[in-house]
Design a protein around this nucleic acid. Structure first.
Lengths: 332, 332
DNA sequence: CTGAAAGCGCTTACAG
DNA sequence: CTGAAAGCGCTTACAG
């Protein structure tokens, strides 16, 4: 912060390089279309002036902001952090900046965030979380591409990149059944996706004639700090479950820690199943059995869609199923 | 994404409300300065058209972007996530959008991110991490306010909001000494701040005639996944330390888990000290003794500075020391 | 391969 | 309290 003199503009560079502003603009956006000697003069004029293109002006003139908004619930112990990191990485590599919006914090207001993003004329909004009609309407009127990740809704706004939570629930049921568990305890977060997984689980569990299921609900998100209460509830159950099914690896970790600290062996006395395959799942003792989703693929598909959309290509599909993989480790 | 027809502009609203564009602009930026009946007409014109102001045009015209860039190393198991959440929350409340840049991921390029931020004419850059001369130079030439958080460098670019890592190291030494520990093992991440804490610790420890110190270095950041190797190293030490000093609560948690899984009791056989007072520190079994930094205050001070700067006020100080608090819990 | 010029959609002194 | 008009710093057909 000093701003001695004024910030150099395209004209300053043009003047210095002895070319028109148009040519400098072309050089910046596509160096190859200007003659080599001209390019060289522009390059040194830019270096000499310390010119940094004004992206506000550029965006206004081109109606391309080269910015996307990413809307996630929160950051602490978030299951999406890994995908987010990759997303930021890929976007940065593509020369796209990311605007971050937190929808699940105290003052989180998804509609307000969407309005802000649209106001900045973002090329796309990447979102994980429920979208009400007003918001869908807002986005539909805009030119922004809406990418819903980590889920596969019936009727995506534009494009969904995710997997079937119902199938995930079903596969968890099959897996636990095949491992011989008989008394699962489900901890379901108060969110759409977790509820769908729960349904998938219960439906399949019943079809397989599994044993009695006990359940508990926790506030979304499924974070570590819920583990104490959730475990205390388990202790109060008339009969102890043999496996606890959690909505995130963070919660699973917490349950394992609580169980161990109360003298139970995991998985012998109580097995625990996570969700999301966060980094900690493989490092925990015991390592956590969980469901992996290819976050890198989600990020790549999103970038590809944004690129196509920015290039004016229509969407080739409205849903990309990246699937999931159940990873059997030590905890269940 | 549909964009049937074209996006409404200020002129569309003005036409519909029967006023000039200037008046609509005034209404949007400061509703009170337009007459009540006029305001009402504009309000309904906005509602009818679904107008969303183009922030690119607005920013260009006013040379205020109402956006700040936040640069942090990474997201997974990040000690800054709590502060980040508060920051996003406060910024959103102030009508400021945040651009996120990850400096520590695979393709992380701080200079490039700073250039992007400056190109978007951000009002401020909030950064945690080392800044080389080129970057400082870039920022100094711009009108953006540079806020370095979580540290108190000798010579802040503009404003630093943090605490003395040297004093933190010193206080950890005093605390462990007072608790009777004699063989501390320091795990220091390969970063400037961790090294300063280490120096503070060692200096004080020596002054107090403490026992022999063993040490290990790990890659930055201090995350959970480093715990296995770090603990294996501890096992190989000729004599077992009585307390392990970690650079983050995530790492401390990992060490505790490893220790427990190898049959050691924490803190009786091996004590563990964390850093940062992340949420998990209070939930872990045993709860983790750590150093707390008031992230909410850091966020508030940053917002206040950004507000003043945007209003044209000069900085009243170049460094704000928010201090830290050693929190004694069960692990050490 | 390059230039002149119009236009992107706002804001803000300047007048009234 | 409100309007007319210039200007913010780029991009992009249109010509050459």
């Amino acid at each position: 912060m000093a701003s001695q003199g004024k910030t150099p503009t395209l004209d300053d560079v043009a003047l210095r390089a002895g070319v028109s502003a148009a040519t400098v603009s072309r050089f910046i956006n596509n160096p190859r279309i200007v003659a080599v000697p001209t390019a060289e003069r522009i390059r040194s004029a830019i270096a000499a002036t310390g010119y940094i293109p004004n992206a506000l002006a550029g965006g206004l003139a081109s109606s391309k902001s080269r910015m996307v908004a990413v809307l996630i619930p929160h950051l602490v112990d978030s299951m999406f952090n890994d995908t987010m990191e990759r997303m930021c990485d890929e976007l940065a590599a593509a020369g796209i900046n990311v605007m971050l919006g937190l929808t699940g914090v105290a003052g989180g207001n998804t509609e307000e965030l969407v309005r802000s993003a649209l106001g900045r004329r973002v090329d796309a909004i990447i979102s994980t979380g429920p979208l009400d009609d007003r918001i869908v309407d807002l986005v539909r009127r805009s030119a922004a591409l809406m990418i819903q990740i980590w889920e596969l809704p019936e009727d995506p706004v534009d494009l969904a990149i995710g997997f079937s939570h119902r199938d995930a629930g079903r596969d968890i049921a099959r897996f636990l059944q095949s491992r011989g568990y008989r008394r699962p305890h489900l901890i379901t977060a108060d969110g759409v996706r977790a509820r769908i997984r729960r349904e998938g689980f219960l439906h399949e569990w019943k079809a397989l004639n599994g044993g009695e299921v006990t359940e508990a609900t926790i506030d979304i998100p499924s974070r570590y700090s819920h583990a104490r209460n959730a475990f205390a509830e388990i202790r109060r159950l008339p009969e102890r479950p043999d496996v606890v099914v959690c909505g995130s690896d963070y919660l699973a970790q917490g349950i394992i820690i609580e169980a161990q600290s109360s003298g139970l062996r995991v998985p012998d006395d109580l097995a625990v199943m996570g969700f999301g395959n966060s980094a900690l799942a493989g490092d925990m003792r015991p390592t956590i059995t969980t469901v992996d989703v290819d976050g890198a693929r989600v990020a790549r598909e999103a970038i590809a869609a944004i690129r196509d959309h920015s290039a004016g290509k229509p969407l080739s599909t409205h849903a990309i199923d990246v699937g999931f993989r159940l990873i059997a480790r030590e905890s269940a």
